[in-house]
Structure formats: C-alpha cells, structure tokens
C-alpha cells in the first residue's frame, strides 16, 4: 500500500491548509528521543489539525508515534522541532507554569488508567481542575454532565468504590467540567471490557455532538476508532492516511495493511 503513504502526505498538506478551525494542531512536528546511534524518531515532520467540534481518533500500530503526537499536541511533552498549537497559542513558547495553566483551563484529559485521585470523592474529582484553578464551577453545566455520565447517586463515593467503567466515566466528566477547547483521551477504553468501553466512547461522542466539544482520542482498537468522525493514521512517526466517517471494518482493513507494511519497514 505505498499509495497510502503518498495519499497521507497529500492529506497532511491539505490538513494544514484547512487549519483555520482547528482546536489543536501540530505543524512539521518532530520528536526525537535519545542521540546518536540510539536516537529514535518518534514523530517525523507531522502536520495535522484537529478540527473544532469534531471527534478525531489517532490510530496506528505500537510505536507509530500516536501517543507521542497526542502528548505533544496536548502540551504534556515538548517537540524536538516544529510547533504545536492549542487554538492560536503556540505551546513551545510557554514555560512549565503557563503550560500547566493552559492544561487546566483549555484542555481536558482522559487517560488509560489511574485517572482519578483516590483520596477525593467523585464530585471532587470532577471539579478538580476547576478547584486547582480556583474557579467556581458552572453548576448547571456540571449537574448536566453528571446526569449525562449517569453517576448522580455516587457523587460522595471514592474512586476505589467504583468499577473501572464508572471511574472512566467520572474521568470524562472531569475532562469536560471546565468546558475545555479540546479533550485528549489516551486509550480511554484500553483497560475496560467492551460494554464499559462502549459507554465511555458513547459519552465522548455525545460530548462532541450534543455539547459542541472537541475530542482527540488515541486508540489501537478499530471499533473504538469507529466512534470518531475522522481517523488519522500514523506509522513510523509519519501521518499516512485520514479516513472520514470510519467504520470498524474499514479501519481494521487499513490497519492490517499497515501491519504488513510496518513489518517490512522495521528491517
């Protein structure tokens, strides 16, 4: 599927041109770990935008750089070269404190595991970023969120008393509580069974389609990616393809092709 690689490069170019409405984007983003012989190029001149009001999934085989792309786009990690933007803010120009403030005010996070602070109650976990910022939560918004995630009866519980799926739904509510410009989710269903995972993905979908949010999700699960509006494919640190209106079958086919190609590329 060499055509896929070429198509990817073309798509990246058009993506950059359509960046006016991107909630987050990276431009010519490269990330290199280590130096000399040990250097690993995790991201190789990737340019991609994540449009506002859309649910974008980042897919790729292990080691394709998808997590690195998300971390750099979200301001958790820094690029070796290139630029990352949240809205029109260039992240490379920000110090640790400014990045932290940006994260808590403009970005939401859902991680694969260990998403909640065990000493805080469900309610406290949901408002944690707001509390850290010293902002008082928008009560109607937060109440609405709690309704949507369906945990109204569990607000005073500690995370340890919830199932994994329930914990992840709390994490989604927390990510949305401050009405961030973009929510980044890193394998949010990786530790869940398919039913709980489905609930979490549906929730992320509703956040975009009913609440007008923007979600960027890293996953290696084709059926998870099928919940997104668009899927971008990464391989060997490069953007290789995009797919709008994905289905699990189509994504799986594309991935199989990468696996064959990836195996060859690793020589």
């Amino acid at each position: 599927m060499t055509g896929g690689v070429a198509a990817g490069a073309v798509t990246a170019g058009t993506g950059a041109a359509a960046d006016i409405t991107a909630a987050a984007r990276v431009v010519a983003a490269s990330k290199v770990y280590g130096t000399g012989d040990a250097a690993v190029r995790a991201l190789d001149a990737v340019t991609v935008g994540f449009p506002a009001g859309r649910f974008t999934a980042i897919m790729g085989p292990s080691g394709s750089g998808k997590s690195t792309l998300m971390h750099c786009a979200a301001g958790l990690d820094s690029l070796t070269s290139g630029a990352a933007y949240i809205g029109e803010t260039e992240l490379g120009a920000l110090g640790d404190r400014q990045l932290t403030l940006l994260r808590r005010e403009r970005v939401g996070f859902v991680f694969q595991s260990f998403n909640l602070v065990p000493t805080l109650t469900v309610a406290e976990n949901i408002t944690l970023p707001l509390d850290l910022a010293g902002r008082s939560p928008d009560a109607a918004w937060v109440d609405g969120l709690i309704d949507v995630v369906g945990l109204g009866g569990r607000l005073r519980h500690r995370p340890g008393e919830l199932s994994g799926g329930q914990q992840q739904r709390v994490a989604v509510a927390r990510a949305l509580a401050g009405r961030p410009e973009v929510v980044f989710a890193d394998e949010p269903t990786g530790n869940l069974d398919s039913h709980s995972g489905g609930e979490v993905l549906a929730l992320l979908g509703r956040a975009v389609r009913e609440m007008g949010g923007t979600v960027v999700m890293v996953t290696h699960d084709p059926s998870a990616a099928a919940h997104a509006d668009e899927v971008v494919f990464l391989a060997d640190g490069r953007l290789v393809d995009r797919m709008t209106g994905p289905t699990a079958g189509a994504v799986l086919d594309r991935m199989k092709a990468f696996d064959g190609r990836g195996g060859g590329g690793a020589q």
Binding site: L76, D96, R97, T100, L101, R103, R104, E105, F109, F111, F114, N115, L116, V117, P118, L128, P129, L132, A133, R174
Partner: peptide
C-alpha cells in the same frame, strides 16, 4: 508518582 502525574496533567501547578 502516578497520582502526582495525573494532578499535574489536569492542571496542578508545581507550586500547588
């Protein structure tokens, strides 16, 4: 460690 990382990720400043 992980909990602290999470807190930092969701916006706890170093000072906090």
């Amino acid at each position: 460690t992980r909990e602290l990382g999470l807190l930092r990720a969701v916006g706890q400043t170093r000072a906090q």
